[in-house]
Amino acid sequence: MKRVLVIDDATTVRLYYRQILEAQGFAVEEAGNGYEGLEKALAGQFDLYVVDVNMPKMDGYTLVRTIRQEPAICAGPVIMISTETQPQDANAAYLAGANLYLHKPVRPDTLMLYVRLLTGERGS
């Protein structure tokens, strides 16, 4: 079973992604801020990271930049999902090492489309 780490400071947002991903056969772990996301990312191998931008203790860009320095442990693709819609926000995400930048809110079918593309998983 492929494993996804969902990192967002809003509980309902984490639940939302969890429900969508679990319905498609992914195993989901959650972290409530960027620093905690980093701890969990370093502790376990994940096939995908879903990362918010604005979070306490460590923002999403810093998190992605940091895990990209640990390619042996954190090799999985990263989707950043944020409320911010300026072009420079997407640029910052790609510069940090994200594979994809999406705007909130994300529809379930859109999320699953990209998750499958990035993980090579067909899903159920």
Partner: peptide, 17 residues
């Protein structure tokens, strides 16, 4: 530390973080 401060680097060793 994730609830406290980002001042420190996270180091993962086989036995503990």
């Amino acid at each position: 530390m994730s609830r406290i401060t980002p001042l420190f680097k996270v180091r993962k060793f086989p036995e503990a973080i």
